[in-house]
């Protein structure tokens, strides 16, 4: 798989024979039908697949938002498949940072307070400093008191990333993080993710856009609840380079 495999490092998360079955009326839907994945520290994985492939369900299980019907899920060496609601809430709070497609910030609440929210539930004392540090990391140190409706889509998503970073999670999970953004803003978000990954943060991202997937280091393709492909990304796209090009084009268009 990846280069870390050979160094005998323990996987950060390890899914074995994960199944998820939904019963809809008299129909039984196998959203996931026996999925095995290992993700190691420092990886940047894209989970790809068409809609209805089961990638969102997989994401929810990895994010401890949903429990698998059967199978084993070790997160940081701990079995989470059989945890109750309180333990799962604690895992979500301490070990996982979420970034959603629709940003999912609390309305009428400042950027800083949004970022503080997981720290509040985690009963952290140093939440103001941490929240400000996280917002500065995503380049919003000057927007602490802005409410979501005073920020652009890209800025809102950066607040969401700061919120995911604030409690120092093991892993950041992003569900179509660029789905609601224009291409320039998407690229900016991907640049942040790449920078964070370069700092050693593990990122797992769900996307159906191959262009976005090529920003990652590894892609896992799901189809009909099965693992279809698991491959390393060749010719990885670096958002920083692309942004330079895009801005030049943009400037040309406007100066012409």
């Amino acid at each position: 798989m990846s280069d870390v495999d050979s160094k005998q490092v323990q996987p950060m998360l390890s899914l074995r024979e994960i199944r998820k079955t939904y019963v809809m009326g008299d129909q039984v839907v196998n959203a996931l039908d026996g999925v095995d994945i290992d993700i190691y520290p420092g990886e940047f994985v894209a989970i790809m697949g068409p809609s209805g492939s089961g990638k969102s369900t997989l994401m929810h299980i990895i994010g401890c938002l949903d429990a698998p019907t059967s199978g084993s899920y070790l997160l940081d060496g701990i079995e989470v498949a059989e945890m109750d609601d309180y333990e799962l809430a604690n895992v979500r709070n301490k070990k996982i940072g979420f970034v959603f497609q629709g940003f999912n910030l609390l309305a009428r609440t400042s950027a800083q307070q949004n970022v503080e929210l997981p720290l509040v539930y985690g009963r952290r004392k140093d939440r103001a400093e941490r929240a400000i540090a996280a917002l500065e990391k995503v380049g919003l140190g000057n927007r602490l008191d802005h409410k979501p409706n005073q920020l652009s889509g890209g800025q809102q998503q950066r607040v969401a990333i700061a919120r995911a970073l604030a409690s120092d999670p093991l892993i950041i999970l992003a569900d179509e993080p660029t789905g609601n953004l224009a291409s320039l803003q998407s690229e900016e978000i991907m640049q942040i993710f790449q920078e964070l990954n370069d700092e050693g943060i593990t990122i797992v991202m769900v996307t159906h856009e191959p262009d976005i997937g090529r920003h990652c280091k590894r892609t896992v393709t799901i189809k009909d609840g099965h693992l279809l492909r698991d491959e390393l990304v060749e010719n990885r796209v670096m958002a920083a380079d692309l942004l330079v090009e895009m801005r030049q084009e943009h400037d040309l268009l406007h100066t012409a």
């Binding site: 609601d85 809430a89 910030l105 929210l117």
Partner: peptide, 16 residues
């Protein structure tokens, strides 16, 4: 409901 979902996703327990 959505706000409750967000709060739960980032670690609010049922008790919270």
């Amino acid at each position: 409901t959505r706000e409750i979902g967000i709060r739960k996703a980032i670690g609010a327990t049922p008790r919270d």
